[in-house]
Design a protein around this nucleic acid. Structure first.
Lengths: 143, 143
DNA sequence: TTAGTCGCCGATTAAAATGGTCGGCGATGC
DNA sequence: GCATCGCCGACCATTTTAATCGGCGACTAA
């Protein structure tokens, strides 16, 4: 269906929240989960994944939580999507791996891959802080 | 996961097949299903949907089948995707309809919609006959 | 130093979307 | 009129996604 998972939505919300905090203010999972009505355990997992991918940093112990690992101007939407969902693939089977029944005569895989790379290019151009500036997105171009 | 369904893959394969036929040659479901190893009943449904959406035309009776309703230069990838999957929505909930728990404070819907429209724009620029010309896709640009 | 807060992780269940199947009907050319 | 094809709705199977549970271990404030 060419759509993002809820996990990705949650991830973007959380990152946006952190980007609105002052530097060095740690955001804990519970707070974010309550503000946005996101199931706590689910959000916890998502944040852990983002931390593992180096997009956010965790701080343990009481008064612990998360902060952004880098400036909102250096985190791209594509990066977040890949952290949560893995690589963007609009068609599932790749050249090597695949065993789908259409393999031999598949006429769509290769052309769709090119379209896919255009989409990835687009997603990698948009940073978190740009997302919230209408004008900016209007002006984004993909070569 | 930001990916197309198999149905869409099948639809594109079928349309590509028809576009390779000479004008006025009807392609029947069984033939296409055998060439590409697509389950017959499933393909049948897909073609019916494409016909209903005016992308292909059906011809009933023995020796019946389908032909393209218009030139391959006038069928876009976006159009085919919408025919099979409905409107492209990278985030599920719309402004009006939605009842999701994050509605009140959702910070991602609106920005993601803008990205979505960029993707749609891209898909609507690529026609079936362009899909198979590498150079062309390389040159596609989204404003 | 220790208790409570919080992150970390794997396994499991529930819900939704997708893929694929079945059976009957209607049109039409031979 | 009958075999061949498209048409259609209902159904089941599979896969993906969403959400939950339970236990562990790290850290730091008191």
């Amino acid at each position: 269906m060419l759509k993002l998972t809820k996990k990705t939505d949650y991830a973007l919300m959380a990152i946006n929240f952190m980007s609105c905090q002052r530097e060095e203010v740690v955001a804990n999972t519970r707070t974010i989960s309550e503000i946005y009505n996101i199931p706590l355990e689910l959000l916890a997992k998502i944040l852990q994944r983002l931390a593992k991918k180096g997009i956010i940093v965790s701080q343990n112990g009481p008064k612990g939580g998360y902060t952004l690992a880098k400036e909102p101007t250096h985190i791209t939407v594509g990066e977040v999507i890949r952290a949560i969902e893995g690589p963007v693939q609009i068609v599932r089977c790749h050249e090597g791996e695949n065993t789908c029944l259409q393999t031999e005569r598949c006429t769509v895989r290769s052309p769709l891959r090119k379209i896919e790379s255009k989409i990835v290019e687009l997603l990698d151009q948009i940073t978190i802080d740009q997302m919230y500036k209408e004008e900016v997105i209007e002006e984004i171009t993909v070569r």
